[in-house]
Design a protein around this nucleic acid. Structure first.
Length: 373
DNA sequence: GCATAATGGTCTTTCGAAGG
DNA sequence: CCTTCGAAAGACCATTATGC
């Protein structure tokens, strides 16, 4: 078995799209058990695909013969030896194809061969879409497609979505849960203090009301209102998304917002208090589009940036018990935790499920699709 | 109302250090 | 030197909010 994360020895020997589809056909109808974890499913699928493709004849390049161009291999597909990457499709009306850290239908370079300067570019990478029949727990459809095909049939990949991340090291987490009280706290930035009201007061605005100078609670007050109530509390919802909203609701209520005041999406979670709220039971904190590591003005009137926005991170165990809290302005996050270097982004393209359904039971390459525009 | 952009957060993989 | 381990990094898929 070769390591398919290496580039092919010779690009001309790589299987054509049709060959890939043919080789994968035997997988149709085979068992594939979905776990409740998407990330695991995608990975499990990739292993099956790799095994099916690698008949021992795939020649990979010597490690001295090529150079990976993107920094830290970001965006290089897993099945590089086959100039492909696999994606799992389950249910819904449409499938959201999400490609990380590369622009699929461009000639941006991924690999350069040292001998002759041959290149592997983004548009050389084929998508292997594998649809799972969730009832039968079987592989149902396989579609191999080029980036150009996706663009021609379904439209361009939209603007990339940025994602910033933060790591809370296990040691740091233990440090926080060992504090008394179990809360890591830093006070507001001077920028924020300029707009906070001294002392406590009643909230009359709603969560979504834009922040008003002089009507922001000082972070110390927020601390006194929420921390002791949250510690030791259990978030009852099972799935992470609802859990996050549960905490958001809890915090809003503790701060004095009306119970029926609707939550709002976007950043930060409670705009009226310039407060972002996160639940974490794993080390990776997903900051999303905005990060204090890359200061951006969030409120031009108040001159507030992501460094001033307050972050409440509830550290929970796997069952939702709040074991510790970090409450500080964005600019302090980096003091205790580690920002992941650089930025990651993804390009997305939604594909109607009808497309996949129409090739049910087959394994095809760039198929003619009458349903397209 | 629809397609796109963004949020959600955890999981796998990688990498370098430590241990045998 | 090889293996193991933990921390860091990168990526995964689902779903919802947003803007036209």
């Amino acid at each position: 078995m070769s390591d398919l994360s290496f580039p092919p020895a010779n690009i001309s020997d790589v299987m054509s799209g049709q060959k890939l589809a043919d080789r994968l056909y035997p997988l149709i109808g085979t068992k594939f058990s979905l776990t409740k974890n998407p990330r695991t499913n995608g990975s499990a699928l990739r292993k099956i695909i790799s095994k099916q493709l690698d008949d021992g004849r795939i020649q990979i390049a010597d490690k001295n013969d090529f150079e990976i161009v993107p920094v830290r291999k970001k965006g290089v597909p897993k099945l590089l030896a086959c100039l492909a990457d696999s994606y799992i499709v389950t249910t819904g009306n449409s499938y959201n194809l999400q490609v990380w850290n590369r622009f699929p239908n461009t000639s941006n370079v991924l690999v350069r061969y040292k001998k002759d300067n041959t290149l592997i570019k983004c548009d050389d990478i084929r998508f292997i879409l594998v649809q799972i029949d969730t009832n039968k727990q079987q592989i149902k459809t396989i579609i191999v497609a080029t980036p150009q095909y996706i663009v021609d049939n379904f439209g361009v990949f939209g603007v990339p979505t940025m994602k910033y991340q933060l790591i809370i090291a296990e040691t740091k987490r233990k440090e926080i849960t060992g504090l008394f009280p179990k809360c890591l706290f830093f006070n507001d930035t001077p920028n924020m203090t300029a707009h906070t009201q001294h002392g406590d007061f009643n909230i009359t605005d709603s969560i979504s009301t834009s922040p008003q100078s002089g009507k922001l609670l000082p972070l110390k007050v927020i601390k006194s209102k929420v921390v002791s109530s949250l510690l030791g509390r259990k978030l009852i919802n099972a799935d992470t998304k609802t859990r996050g909203q549960e905490l958001e609701r809890l915090v809003a209520t503790l701060l004095g917002y009306q119970v029926d005041d609707p939550l709002v999406g976007g950043y930060p979670d409670i705009p009226n208090q310039l407060l972002e709220i996160k639940v974490q039971d794993s080390p990776t904190v997903d900051l999303g589009k905005y990060s204090p590591s890359n200061p951006v003005v969030i409120d031009a009137n108040l001159n507030i940036t992501t460094e001033d926005v307050r972050y409440l991170i509830a550290l929970t165990d796997k069952s939702g018990n709040i074991e510790g809290i970090s409450l500080c302005p964005g600019n302090k996050l980096g003091d205790s935790f580690t920002f992941v270097n650089g930025t990651s982004y993804k390009c997305q393209r939604s594909i109607p499920m009808n497309f996949l359904e129409s090739f049910s039971g087959k394994s095809v390459f760039n198929p003619k699709y009458p349903g397209n525009q």
